[in-house]
Every structure is written in structure tokens, then in C-alpha cells.
Amino acid sequence: MNVLTDTAAVQNSGARQPLIAFDQVYKIYGHGESEVRALDGVSFQIFPGEFVAVMGPSGSGKSTTMNILGCLDTPTAGHYYFKGQDVGSLSRDGRALLRRHDLGFVFQGFNLLARTTALENLELPLIYRRIEAHERHRLAREALKLVGLDGREDHTPAELSGGQQQRVAIARAIVTKPSLLLADEPTGNLDSARSHEIMELLTRFNREHGLTIVLVTHEDDIAAFANRRIDFRDGKIVRETRKGA
């Protein structure tokens, strides 16, 4: 673990471009009396290969941060740079293309297509990437194997346990080989044994494939898998900690 932290620290201190940069990001809902500052001037940078846990009490702005990171939402003020590009200046389609090519999502509720086999669920992002059928099937099978679900290609979500569904969701997120994986409480619906399996899987992707991961969680033992931790409260970052630092 320490070795890994050290590399991240080296990358961090070097002249390398951050993958993600939040620069005084605000997200404000409503006006006047009912104004809610979901994000209240947040700045941070994440470098390639990092595994970041975002923590904080409910309503502190974690999901809002993830939505902006995921290009599903845009800041009310401030800038979000992804690979140096200001996402706020992109059109809706531009952000969709960014998601398609660079991002992978894992949700608390799995969000798999019901009555659709694991293989077809995995094909979906590849179809939007215009990857032809043969290659698509190969990549989908490979990804299922990586999450330990080979042999379950033809199972629909209803035929899989919660842990297995989340593995399919992770496989779907990584099948396109994204530069950033975003996971909003991915273990929120799983028991602790299942949660640790999922976290081990994510840690493996981070270490072996250099996948950058940003993960939201409530739980310290889950956050412990990451090598950097950002704590939110009331839309502000209240603490940043680095493993081994």
C-alpha cells in the first residue's frame, strides 16, 4: 500500500497534468431564502492512477461532486477541467461524448438493464462506441472474466445476487477502458463481506491497470481501500488525508 501511495505522491508532486481539476466550484440550488449551496467553492486536483474516497455526512455535497465529475451536471460557478479541458464550455452532446470515451460509472443501485443478460448489458457502452459485434463480444466476455463472472454471460440481473449485479455493473464501467471510474456508494446496498469483495476488485483495477477511481462512501473501512480521502461538510472540503502521509 505504501509503495502505491508513494508513486501517487511522486506523480502528484511532478509536473504531470492532473486528470481532474476543480477550481472554486459552486453548485447552488434555488434562490434567496431557499438557496442551497450544494458545493460552496470547492477546489482539488486528482492525478492519473489515484484512488480517492469522498466522504462526508448526508447532504454534504458528495453526489453533487460526483455528478459534476461525471459530466452529468455543470457547476453554477467555477471551473471543472477534465484532462485540461473546461467541461463547463462543452455542449450536452460534448459531455455525452466525454462520458462515452473517458468515464465509467458504478451506482449504488447497480442500474443494469432489467430482463437483459449480463453480456448484453456489457455490450451497451460498446455499441455506443461503435465497436463491431465480434470485438464487442470478446471485450464483454473478457470484462466479465475480470470481475469473476465468466459463465454468467446469459444471466439476467434477476438471476444474479446483489454482489454479482454490482460486479456486472463494474464490468460494464470498465469494459470501455475509461480513464476515470466514478462510484457513488457502490457498496451501499451490499453486506460487508460483499462490500469488501467489491472493494478488492476495485483496488485490483487501480493497481494492476492504473485505473483512476473516485468513490463515495460513508464507511471508514471502505474508505480505507483508497489511498487518498477527501472529507466534505456543507458543500466544503473540511479535510484531505493521504495514506502514509
Binding site: L72, L97, L98, R100, N111, L124, P125
Partner: peptide
């Protein structure tokens, strides 16, 4: 709605 949300999150364009 959820299916459409998944498609959009995965990177489907409006026109697609």
C-alpha cells in the same frame, strides 16, 4: 426513465 438514464450516463447522444 431509468433505462434512458443509463443510456445517457453511458454516453448516448440525445439524437441517438
Amino acid at each position: 426513465t431509468r433505462e434512458i438514464g443509463i443510456r445517457l450516463a453511458i454516453g448516448a447522444l440525445e439524437k441517438e
